[in-house]
Nucleic acid binder design. Structure first.
Lengths: 323, 323
DNA sequence: TTGTACGCGTTATCAG
DNA sequence: CTGATAACGCGTACAA
């Protein structure tokens, strides 16, 4: 039951008959600054002793942690956990740790989290933004802390961003439905606010259809009967386009649209999981690639760690599929 | 665009005309060790300057971080994100940070994560275990790092654990179905292995029904037609009991059980979200309280932070509801 | 190529 | 009640 005394860089230095500075150089990959003999010796000893650096000390000396903050707008959603997985898989390969925070779709929470993250010297930040206030992020960039936005844009071109082709893929899908004879689209979404994904998707619909109805609902307090009153359900040329999977599932499960005599697909939307396909195997939906989006965001972030003056801002688009 | 120089404890001490030691005491809440006057003065200055401690320095000095590792067996599941939320809500109130890791249902990954977490001096660990090897956890307890298990037990009574009443609630639900005239149960689950939740649920079924069929499937590669061949689907007295929500949804969406002429509920299971209820509004399912489980685990963990020799091991049970 | 000495911000100890 | 000072473990000028 004894506490295991952890080795320090000093112990390693002593064992190897070199100075701590040399060990430190080895640990930081500055192998060209020492004889090959020394490097080999250190490699052996470190392996044998299973020595690991004390990350607190590293952090204190370097004035940066190995923590990357990831602020999701809602971690309940499959989309979030999936892109978080993508982020973590890349980060951990470079010994960074992804820390997941949840702004819970609440701008005040987001603001508090950003403040807290800022104060903790995180090495970087990946943010799925709620607000469009760039000044919240300026603190980080002024502090040389790289920031990457994911999923949503905030409209200033200063920050690297990973999104999907919301407008294009929506337009593509809508064009397909137009061909099938639809003449009206009812969009069902959570409140649009200034959320770029929703704005772009709606624009995608409007670029194809003239007759567009927009219904904003609250997922947690959805009144289906109230909703169906608003929808022109008996018009077979009215397409339902649902921007959020949970809403889509609820509608698929509770309307008769699935068992239409015409058996024509009259409802579609953005999906994250396979569940909508269980419910309607022959329907086509728009599917994103959250894992890839996360991995990409992490990659961009880490590139900014190494490059000195993070000159090139990148707007990366990971396309979605309509299928 | 200037870098903002962060204040140090030294700066505060100078401004207040006291020593750094005094400031440190104030920061640690040792208010009885100083005059009220000093305390008031410090409070004012710290508020005005918006000073925050450098957590790396704290960590180095205390030899413990403010990070709590949370290792989930699969973060894709709603159950995980929900209990993680519960954990975070309690931790953050005490300035601890929850770090989410995903063992991805892979014992090798779990083992590697534990090793990595151990080396990073996390303040504590909340683990949803895959393996039942206690020696993986001994390292932590030997090191005075508190550990709490969540959802699943590993069978040695040495570690605090938060679970639900898998056996009891299953038994209760089964008794209700027995009353309705069922005489056989088909359990559909992912491979049982040594996972305590699954074992207990199966035992709950067996405590009520004599005729029990067990089918182990792989969620990601589920062949529905193959499955229905195995099930005695035409026997109206055969109940389907599904241990995993994703499987349950898939079955609900793809079988005709929902539209039985008898309109009797012939399928049930454990659920995490409302989705199964969308599909079958009148059915009864077993619902856990993951958020509460997480909050409870965090509370136990934090109690172990303060108490010296974490004497009392607790086995907490958060009951599930059949409704 | 290698070593020394100091800085990083905080806490703990011991002396007043 | 308060202060001085030695750790804590590592990175990095600067020196050799």
């Amino acid at each position: 039951m004894d506490k295991i005394k952890k080795l320090t860089i000093k112990d390693i230095a002593t064992k190897a008959n070199v100075s701590t500075a040399t060990v430190s150089r080895y640990l930081n990959g500055q192998l060209n600054q020492m004889s090959e003999k020394t490097a080999v010796k250190l490699k052996k000893i470190i392996k044998e002793t299973a020595y690991v650096r004390n990350s607190a000390a590293v952090q204190l000396a370097k004035q940066k942690s190995n923590l990357v903050a990831v602020i999701a707008s809602n971690i309940d959603e499959y989309f979030s956990s999936e892109y978080f997985k993508g982020i973590v898989s890349l980060l951990s390969a470079q010994n960074y740790i992804g820390v997941l925070f949840d702004s819970n779709s609440d701008i005040a929470v987001e603001s508090a989290l950003l403040e807290s993250v800022y104060n903790q010297d995180f090495a970087g930040l990946i943010l799925q933004p709620l607000s469009t206030e760039p000044h919240l992020i300026d603190k980080f960039t002024n502090n040389d802390t790289p920031v990457v936005l994911i999923d949503r844009d905030i409209g200033n071109g200063e920050i690297s961003t990973v999104t999907t082709n919301n407008f294009q893929v929506t337009k593509f899908a809508m064009a397909s439905f137009l061909d099938e004879g639809f003449n009206k689209v009812t969009i069902i979404t959570e409140p649009v606010n200034r959320i770029s994904t929703r704005i772009e998707r709606i624009a995608g619909v409007r670029s194809v259809f003239d007759h567009v109805q927009l219904i904003e609902v609250d997922t947690d307090h959805l009144d289906l009967s109230e909703l169906s009153d608003e929808i022109d359900i008996n018009n077979p040329k009215n397409l339902l386009f649902v921007l959020k999977e949970r809403l889509l599932i609820q509608l698929l499960a509770n309307t008769d649209l699935l068992n239409e005599p015409t058996s024509r697909q009259r409802i579609t939307g953005f999906v994250d999981t396979n569940i909508p396909r269980y419910l309607a195997p022959k329907y086509k939906f728009i599917q994103q690639s959250p894992y890839l989006m996360g991995a990409t965001a992490a990659e961009i972030l880490m590139r900014q760690f190494s490059e000195q003056h993070t000159a090139d801002i990148k707007q990366i688009v990971i396309p979605s599929r309509f299928e």
